[in-house]
């Protein structure tokens, strides 16, 4: 349990630093940035305390917001993603989620991809909607959501593959 806690804390800190110091400055094609820090919400232990999980997600988002000067948009997006996670887990992994004995590294690729895809899409959509804060920009919101999601998902899959041995 203790090593799990420690690895989550380290992951939290590393992801925040990685996001604000490197990933926020990529600006691929002008405005496309990956938001890799969602990985924390994806990987948080499935059986963990849900209230603590919600609070930690909020904390993660607000830390990014402080660096980005963006009010509370990342916090809100993380919070929504964390709140819908149990439903998405049930949707993607079916009955095995209720037994609480799955690990992301051991699941079939299709289920894993649908879980990651839906989580990232929801997070990014809330994030960009709140960033623009106006329906006039709906096309821009959808465009940003789509392209940034693709970028984020690729990075998440890459980092899951790269670091999968460690979490065994």
């Amino acid at each position: 349990m203790n090593s799990k806690l420690l690895s989550n804390i380290t992951r939290f800190i590393i992801l925040v630093f990685l996001q604000v110091l490197i990933l926020n400055n990529i600006n691929f094609a002008g405005y496309i940035n990956p938001y890799l820090y969602v990985l924390f919400i994806l990987l948080y232990p499935f059986s963990g305390n849900q209230s603590l999980f919600l609070f930690l997600s909020f904390l993660l988002g607000i830390s990014i917001d402080i660096f980005e000067d963006s009010g509370g948009i990342n916090a809100a997006a993380c919070l929504v993603a964390a709140f819908v996670r149990p439903n998405l887990l049930r949707f993607s992994f079916g009955i095995s989620y209720d037994h609480q004995n799955i690990r992301l590294a051991h699941t079939p690729f299709g289920a894993k991809l649908s879980y990651i895809f839906l989580m990232v899409l929801i997070h990014h959509f809330v994030l960009f909607s709140l960033e623009m804060f106006s329906l006039n920009h709906i096309i821009l919101i959808l465009k940003k959501t789509l392209f940034s999601s693709i970028f984020t998902i690729i990075l998440i899959l890459l980092s899951l593959t790269l670091f999968s041995k460690k979490y065994r």
Binding site: F55, G61, I66, G72, A75, A76
Partner: peptide
């Protein structure tokens, strides 16, 4: 959980709206 979610969501929306509405967001800046 739902109540915690709603409270925290309200806080973040409040911060967002404040950041959009005024020239100076008072609580959070880099």
């Amino acid at each position: 959980n739902s109540i915690l979610f709603l409270i925290l969501l309200a806080v973040s929306i409040f911060l967002t709206v404040q950041n959009h509405a005024f020239q100076k967001s008072r609580f959070i800046s880099s």
